[in-house]
Structures are given as C-alpha cells and as structure tokens.
Simulated scan of single mutants.
Amino acid sequence: MSSTRAPDGAPPDWSSVHVAVPPPSARLPGVSMAGFSQRVPAFVDMAMVAHPSVTVLIDLSEGDGLLYGAAGRHGHGSFVVGLAPGDLRAAGRVGACLQIRLEPAVAAAVLGPSGGLGGRVESFEDVWGREAARAQEELRAAGSWDERFAVAADLLRRRTADRSPVDPEVAHTWRTTLVSRGRVRVEDLADEVGWSRKRLSARFHAQLGIAPKRAGRLVRFDHAAHLLAAGLAPATVAFECGYADQSHLHREVGAFTGLTPTAVAGAPWLAIDDVAWPGQSPGA
C-alpha cells in the first residue's frame, strides 16, 4: 500500500503508527504477515501499489472502517487483492489492520483454484466464505498482535489442509520469474519445464489467475517500484530493470498503479517495507 494522505493532503505521521511482525512460531512457508495500528484512529486515503502476492487485508477497526474501490467496483470492510489489480484505493478511519501476503501458489491452496483472483479485488466475505465472520471476530478479540498472528496462522493452516498444491511446473515457473526479476521469456520457461508455451500459459493462468507474461511484468514492476522508493532516478531504474526507456517505465508504473514514478517513489508503505516485511528482498 502506498501514498497515504490525510484529508488535507498532508503526509501521515508515521511515528504514530505501530508496525508488528509475527514471531517465528506464527510464520508459514509462502506467507508474510504484518500488523498496523495507530494510537489514535485516523482517516487514511491510500493508493495501493501492486505486489507479486495475493494480499488479504483484515480491517480490525471499530465503526465504519475501510472503503475500497478498483475498476469501478467498490466495497466496505476487509478485502482480498488479486495479482495486479490496477488502480486501487482504500480510505476510511482506521485504527488497526492485519495484512497477509500470500505467494500465488499458497493463495491457490488457501483461496481455491485461481487464487490470484485474476487481478480482481473482492470482499473478504466473498472469498473466504461462510467462515469469514467468525475469522474476523477471532482476530478482533485477540488481546495482542502475537495472538492475532497465531490465530491467522491457524486459520491459514486449516484452509490448506485438504487442498492440492499447484502443478510443480507452475510453481517452478513462478519461482524462476521471481528470481529473474521478471526478465525471462515465457518460451524459455516453457522449455525448462518441458511444456509447450500454450500449455504452460493455460495451466499457469488457471491455477494462479494471471498469465506468465503478465506475471513477469508484475515482478519487474515490483523491483522497479522499490528502486524508485530507494531514491534512484527513473532513468536509472528503467535501465536497471530492463525497460526499453524511461517512457516504457512510466507506462508500466501507470498500468499497475495509476500513479507516476514520482508518486511511487514517495509511497510511504514502500519506505517501511524493511520494517513490515523483514528479511525479504525487494523485487526478488
């Protein structure tokens, strides 16, 4: 998430935001979690920057909570963001929220086939099903962030217990895309797993909800976004990430976020990634 602004357009006071990370006992393969809370619930207006994971955002606030919208669709409360949702915004008076990032293969197990949601944004209730209300009640009733992380880990374990993983070829393709930072041809990926490009594209899209070529673009964008946030000039970022030129970078940033490279560079949620998601290499 990025570009948080108060109603008057001023940047938020991040010193008032507490960021919690789970203890080792609550960490699961392919899952990252972080908790965000404000000492005094405050209005936020966020442009959410695309990330190469499926994001579950649980609104733990009392009262009206979050409003969100993307591609002409709007909702209220907790929601799930598929891969590459485009121009997505969330706003409201928020006291606390739990953000869960699921690697696409894990999302397919947690959320069912096509766990990437095809880039859509859906309400938590629609995605999680009849257990959604109880899950949110358990998380809100928890007395500490460590307890919330434990509850969330247990919920995720129960969701994946009886579901088959994605094809090994699909999982390998995703991992290779990440390691290469999106700079590998689909034809080469297909050759690696011994499938035709057509078969790989069909299976990858069916199981992860995104085409392999778009997945590569998303991973490359994520790397570029973190380099922009680190202070590198757009021209340098375009060269480092393999874009044809700075205009190409500008178009990709706009396609994935609806923002300019300058706006992404100032995204506060990217700036605190090292705090919220320790041990993760941006764009890798």
Rank of each mutant, 00 (worst) to 15 (best):
K198L: 00
A276I: 01
T55F: 01
D191H: 06
R199S: 11
A109S: 15
A84W: 04
R134T: 15
A233C: 08
T55D: 15
G69L: 01
G216I: 07
A96Q: 09
A133I: 10
E240R: 15
P85V: 11
L232G: 01
D274C: 03
Q280S: 11
T160Y: 04
A26F: 14
C97W: 11
A70Q: 03
A211S: 08
V49N: 11
R148M: 10
D59Y: 06
G279S: 08
E103I: 05
V166F: 05
Q280Y: 12
W277I: 03
L228E: 04
S53V: 15
A10N: 07
L270E: 01
R39M: 04
V264H: 01
H172Q: 12
A135R: 12
F149C: 05
A70T: 09
G258S: 14
Q99Y: 09
G209P: 08
G258F: 10
S15T: 11
D245S: 09
S32V: 15
V17D: 09
A90I: 02
A284P: 12
G72M: 02
H172L: 13
S2C: 12
S3T: 13
L60W: 04
G209A: 02
V170A: 06
D126E: 13
R73L: 11
S15C: 00
A141Y: 06
T4H: 15
F79A: 08
H250N: 14
L208E: 04
V40C: 06
V19C: 13
A271D: 05
R27T: 15
L228A: 04
L228R: 08
R89V: 08
R175S: 14
G283R: 10
F79K: 06
R140G: 07
G82R: 01
V170S: 00
S53R: 14
P234N: 09
S78V: 09
R140A: 11
R134H: 14
S180M: 08
G112L: 14
R5L: 03
E240Y: 13
V264E: 04
C241G: 07
R163S: 13
S53N: 12
E240L: 15
W14E: 03
L155F: 13
T260G: 01
Q280V: 12
V40N: 05
E125P: 01
A108F: 06
H248W: 09
D273P: 00
E137P: 08
F36A: 10
G77W: 08
V237T: 08
S61F: 06
D245V: 07
D222I: 02
V110M: 11
A109Y: 02
A224T: 07
A105H: 10
S281Q: 15
E138V: 08
A26R: 09
S78H: 03
V81A: 10
A90D: 07
H74V: 14
P11G: 05
A10P: 01
R203V: 11
H226S: 07
V186D: 06
D162V: 13
L200A: 00
D64A: 15
A141Q: 11
G82P: 02
A107Y: 00
A255R: 11
H76K: 14
E131H: 13
G92Q: 02
A107T: 07
G77F: 09
A90P: 06
A152D: 08
V121Q: 09
A171K: 04
D245W: 12
E138D: 13
P104Q: 03
L218V: 06
V237W: 00
R251Q: 12
T173N: 02
M48F: 14
P261D: 06
